[in-house]
Simulated scan of single mutants.
Amino acid sequence: MNRNNIILLIPHYKNIDGLYASLSSIDKNENLDVLIVDDGSNLDIDETKIRASFIGNGVVFFEYLKENSGIEIALNKGLNFSTKNKYKYTARLDCGDICVKDRFKIQETYLELHQDISLVGTNVDFLDTKGNLLYTLNVPEKDKQIRKKMFINAMHIHPTIMFRNSMLEITGLYPVDYKAAEDYAFFFNVINKCKVANINQVLVRCEINPNGISTLQRKKQAENRIKLILKNFYVGFYPIYGLFRSILLYIVPLKILIKLKSVLKK
């Protein structure tokens, strides 16, 4: 069915404008297919118009959930599609996030050259909803540092990742019992069984949306992050500091945290 090695998985829920922006940011020289999983939006989605916004070398597929079931369910539906159709790699992007030129080519080349790496992410520019740069996040490149610092925060930014689908045979799909922190749970499963990395380049520009999951479910997210840290806990600096930090995130308002990050990154 597929004629590309990569399929880009984009979950969608009532954000058509963001979907257009994300698809149109993919360069015409990129070789990949796209799967959009609609999480029960109940909208009249114009598939023809959406496909027209994608100028890369590939096909756009659509899958629909009958009702709004949560991003982890939508992602797992996408992974089942990806593995069933024998794609070698799955990449991620969220509606509203923008790809830098050659993003997928760079990541695919990296994974082809580093056969010991199962998952790779990138650095990120974080923007507000008007496209203004808030701050740039540089994540650690090497597996060892990623493992240590995972207790502080996810060391892969979810919309930047690309991974080998063969990895899923040992890591499993996205856990469904950590609402709003499914990516953090998934990353812990991955680093516990596979070697990972990040590319020291900004290849994605992510929008901080006040209506996004991380904002609307922030307390639930922080609560589940605390559970995941405790599940993977050992006595050491990073787990202890990470636990304290997650408790702080649970308490401090998001606007204050974004402002603080912006100041510290300048």
Rank of each mutant, 00 (worst) to 15 (best):
Y184S: 01
P210V: 01
T83E: 12
N31K: 11
N132F: 08
R147C: 13
P239T: 10
N192E: 14
N153I: 14
I117A: 04
K28Y: 09
K88P: 00
R218D: 12
G18L: 10
V196I: 12
G212D: 15
N132D: 14
D46A: 11
F61H: 15
G212Q: 06
Y234E: 08
K86E: 12
I213P: 03
D183S: 09
P159I: 05
D27F: 02
G40V: 06
Q107Y: 07
P140E: 08
Y110H: 05
I256R: 13
R245Y: 12
P11I: 05
L243H: 07
P159W: 06
K148L: 15
S24Y: 03
C194E: 13
P175G: 07
N224I: 01
I16C: 02
L168F: 14
K265P: 00
S82C: 09
K86Y: 03
G96T: 14
N165S: 05
T122G: 10
K14V: 09
I71D: 05
Y135R: 04
A74N: 10
G236T: 08
L249D: 12
V139G: 01
G56M: 01
N232M: 01
I208K: 11
Y20C: 06
I208V: 14
K149T: 09
L35V: 07
G40F: 06
Y178R: 05
I16G: 02
N31D: 07
G242D: 04
Y238W: 15
Y135T: 00
K14Y: 00
K220P: 02
T215M: 11
L257Q: 15
A197C: 10
G58Y: 00
G172H: 07
R225N: 15
N57R: 14
L23K: 14
I10V: 15
F187H: 12
D27M: 03
D39M: 02
V37S: 02
Y174H: 08
K219Q: 14
Y135N: 01
L264W: 02
E72Q: 13
K193C: 03
S214P: 01
A52Q: 14
F244S: 09
K49A: 15
N4M: 01
I208W: 13
D94H: 11
K266N: 10
P159F: 03
S22K: 06
N209C: 05
S41Q: 02
N57T: 08
F233G: 05
Y234L: 06
C194W: 05
V59S: 04
A185G: 03
P159D: 11
M155H: 05
P253K: 05
L249A: 04
E30N: 01
N4C: 04
G172K: 07
I6N: 09
N200Q: 13
I26A: 03
T215D: 08
N2D: 06
K193R: 13
Y64S: 10
A222M: 11
D27K: 03
T90C: 04
A154F: 09
A222E: 11
D39H: 06
N132A: 07
T48Q: 13
I213N: 15
G236Q: 10
Y250V: 11
R225Y: 10
E47G: 04
K66P: 00
D128H: 10
I251M: 11
I229Q: 03
N29T: 07
I98C: 00
Q217R: 13
D102V: 02
L75N: 11
D33P: 02
Q115C: 00
N138M: 06
K86N: 13
N42C: 07
N138T: 15
L216E: 12
H156D: 02
D27A: 09
S41N: 02
D44K: 12
D17L: 09
